[in-house]
Write a protein that binds this DNA or RNA. Structure first.
Lengths: 107, 107
DNA sequence: ATCGTCTATCGTAGATTTACGATTAAACTA
DNA sequence: TAGTTTAATCGTAAATCTACGATAGACGAT
């Protein structure tokens, strides 16, 4: 059992869930906040800010990158991460759309 | 390993992630949409709308209820589910706060 | 009281996520 | 070139999530 049925839903529901999933761990929320505050977005700085090992942070960064919320550019030996405005906007639009639709229910 | 470190983060990051987690499966997004559209929010109706077994839907409803996004009131033999406006608003506020903060980054 | 309906819960299997040490790969430095 | 730094990836263990059948509990109808 437990073969996933997540793809039996509508496209926008799946996208909405994907973005929400990317934000569903405090570490990833924290990463976005760090990126928002700092000008320099070097990976090492992020690792220092979080109570997690380097490998774990790298994994979280990968998830955020895969869904398109952040992007990383190689800067010499290190990698500079940055929020991806387009992805962020798309996520915001989808989620706030859900919220405003839902708010209409139940008077 | 893999003992959770999710509680080493800030309160608002944890809350933000909790709401996002509740929305991180297409079925739960779909449930919110059904509740938004229908006036009658009987559990059985929701089960019919989704390509999932009754037990699975009940589980998803439980998760949405536990995080405070929906509420259920017993109506005779059945249960009437409804969106919880306060929880929804709180989720919206936290997540849109994150989005607007993040949007400031990177010019 | 018994039966049928409706929903929650239990038990469980399989998949995915989380976390980290160890290793690898790339690039700079001496 | 050899050594150092930086970040991604591999391998893996534990935890959590997803999904469903079976069962239980509550309620209304007969």
């Amino acid at each position: 059992m437990a073969q996933t049925k997540a793809d039996l839903f509508q496209e926008d529901e799946i996208m909405c869930a994907s973005y929400a999933k990317a934000l569903s761990h405090p570490a990833r929320v924290a990463i976005l906040k760090v990126l928002a505050q700092r000008k320099s977005c070097v990976c090492g700085d992020i690792v220092e800010e979080l109570p997690l090992a380097q490998a774990t942070v790298s994994q979280h960064l990968k998830e955020l990158k895969e869904v398109g919320l952040i992007q990383g550019t190689i800067d010499g030996p290190s990698v500079c991460y940055c929020i991806n405005p387009e992805g962020l906007q798309r996520a915001q639009k989808l989620l706030s759309g859900l919220f405003t639709a839902a708010a209409k229910c139940c008077g």
